[in-house]
Amino acid sequence: MRRALILLLLLLAPLSALALSSPADMLPDPAQEERARALGREIRCMVCQNQSIEDSEVGLARDLRLLVRERIAAGASDAEVKSFLHARYGDFVLLRPPFAWNTLILWATPVLALLGGFGLIWLSRRKAVQPTPPAPLTAEEQRRLAELERVGGGTQA
């Protein structure tokens, strides 16, 4: 899983140290820093493919982290920062798919699944109340029945 992800990173950028971001990158205002962090967790690190920019130490992720912080320090709202990045990197950069006509099924999954499940339960309970009559015997079974009635019993072979 993640191991390989890191592998890929290392393939792309051999010898780059697993750097941590520098404390100097953080915003002085803890509330703003907290906002930046929450926002950064919703932005995909494009190179690493399955990490947010907050979790990645690729150079680009760090650049984007700084960019997010700069914008927030400049007074941009979360939505503005997101749309700024969206305009450059497209839908792919958003880890939370935006509500849109083509993500409708995705976001409706919990509701659809619940409705479907309740429907299924309702259907099967209706059936349980009215037990179905046993299927009519086939010709083969009829013959076997006649035989059974003739012999009247048997022993195990």
């Binding site: 792309l12 494009m46 190179v47 150079g59 680009l60 650049d63 984007l64 960019l67 450059r88 990197y89 497209g90």
Partner: peptide
Amino acid sequence: VPGRVAIDWGVYG
């Protein structure tokens, strides 16, 4: 050098 214009272009590598 700062890589900022690259971000404006949507460069990721």
